[in-house]
Simulated assay, not measured.
Amino acid sequence: MTIKPIKTAEDHQRALARIDELWDAEPNTEAADELDILVTLIEAYEEAKYKIDAPDPVEAIKFRMDQEGLRDSDLVPFLGQRSRVSEVLNRKRRLTLPMIRRLHSGLHIPLECLVMDYELDRTEA
């Protein structure tokens, strides 16, 4: 078993092809160990090369609304009155700590998404 670091797209493709060959390896064999190591190397390479940033808070809320089939009015228990819901979704008002807590506990939106800084829309309507 000769394993090298994955540094290029070619290395990545070669490692993926090797994983295909090893996929059905019996547990506790040299092939299974090689498979485990290659998976770890590929995960590290892909995390560094193809990093996907978490969505900003407003996008995270909109995504969860889409997933759950929620309307703006369904956010009133989490954000307050309808006008406040509109202000948050239109980036006119920032989330407060109590809003973040309610969104996290009620809609299970990850805290790391809700506490991210984001731009407000300062244009006048």
Rank of each mutant, 00 (worst) to 15 (best):
K92V: 03
E68I: 11
D20S: 13
L75K: 03
R84D: 06
F63E: 14
Q13A: 12
K62G: 03
V85A: 01
R91F: 03
V88G: 00
V88I: 07
L70C: 08
E43C: 05
E34R: 07
D11R: 01
S86Y: 05
E21K: 13
D20K: 13
L75Q: 05
T8L: 04
S83G: 06
A32R: 05
V58L: 02
V88K: 01
I19M: 05
R18W: 06
K51N: 11
I42M: 07
P27I: 04
L16M: 14
R94F: 06
Y45H: 05
P57C: 02
L75Y: 00
P27D: 10
L16S: 09
L75I: 04
D72R: 14
G80C: 01
D36N: 11
D66V: 09
P55C: 00
E34A: 12
E87L: 07
R91S: 06
Q81W: 05
V58D: 00
I52T: 14
V39K: 12
Y50L: 07
P55H: 00
R71V: 07
L22Q: 12
H12E: 07
P57L: 01
I42L: 10
F78I: 04
P57Y: 00
F78E: 01
T40D: 12
D74W: 08
F63W: 11
I19S: 01
R91K: 14
G80L: 00
E87D: 07
L95V: 08
E43N: 08
E43Q: 09
D72C: 10
R94H: 11
A48G: 13
L35G: 04
D33K: 11
L70Q: 08
I52V: 15
V85T: 12
A54L: 15
Y45S: 03
